[in-house]
């Protein structure tokens, strides 16, 4: 433990992990929808710092740009459009009985994964090695070019699907006239 504390990166990790844990807790418990979204921003920002500690620079910027930039904005739109209650709202969650069941299931999952991890990896060391954008680019357009294209198709399908789903039915628009 002394060794662990002597490393500066670990202090960073501890601070960020605590903040992330609290923020994630707020995501799932906050009674205010906007607060929950902002807590998710904090969690994702924390994960970006962790990626930085691990030397994954490109992932850091992607998380910041795509997640924190785009996805969160999408969420805020979703909240506004669906007129989700913006203030505090008791009705956001299920009754305590359901909550208890959910907590048991989630807790069981955490214990299971945690036990497995400790059993498997113990105190294995990990050291950060910086991966440059160039390295990622070479791999992405070399070995991973096919999955990359497939993902772009997924995005296209999602784009079209989003439009088809969210647009108003022509009949409805006619009716409104």
């Amino acid at each position: 433990m002394g060794d662990w504390l002597s490393e500066v990166a670990n202090w960073w990790f501890a601070a960020v992990a605590l903040a992330m844990g609290y923020a994630a807790y707020r995501v799932v418990t906050s009674a205010n929808v906007v607060h929950a979204v902002l807590a998710l921003v904090a969690t994702l920002g924390g994960s970006a710092v962790l990626f930085l500690l691990l030397g994954a620079e490109f992932v850091v910027w992607t998380v910041v740009l795509v997640y924190i930039g785009a996805v969160i904005v999408l969420f805020l739109f979703g909240i506004m459009i669906t007129r989700a209650p913006l203030g505090y709202e008791a009705e956001l969650d299920h009754p305590p009985k359901t909550k208890a069941l959910a907590a048991i299931v989630a807790g069981a999952m955490f214990l299971l994964i945690g036990w497995t991890l400790v059993d498997a990896f113990g105190t294995e060391e990990v050291t950060a090695s910086v991966t440059t954008v160039g390295d990622i680019g070479l791999q992405l357009f070399g070995r991973f070019v096919l999955p990359f294209e497939v993902v772009s198709l997924v995005l296209l399908a999602a784009l079209i699907g989003g439009i088809v789903l969210a647009r108003q039915d022509p009949v409805d628009i006619e009716d409104q006239r």
């Binding site: 299931v105 069981a108 999952m109 299971l112 036990w115 497995t116």
Partner: peptide, 16 residues
């Protein structure tokens, strides 16, 4: 979803 998660836990636990 609860059912699905419980199922997942059981399967993973079985493997582990």
């Amino acid at each position: 979803v609860v059912g699905m998660f419980i199922g997942a836990i059981v399967i993973v636990a079985g493997f582990v």
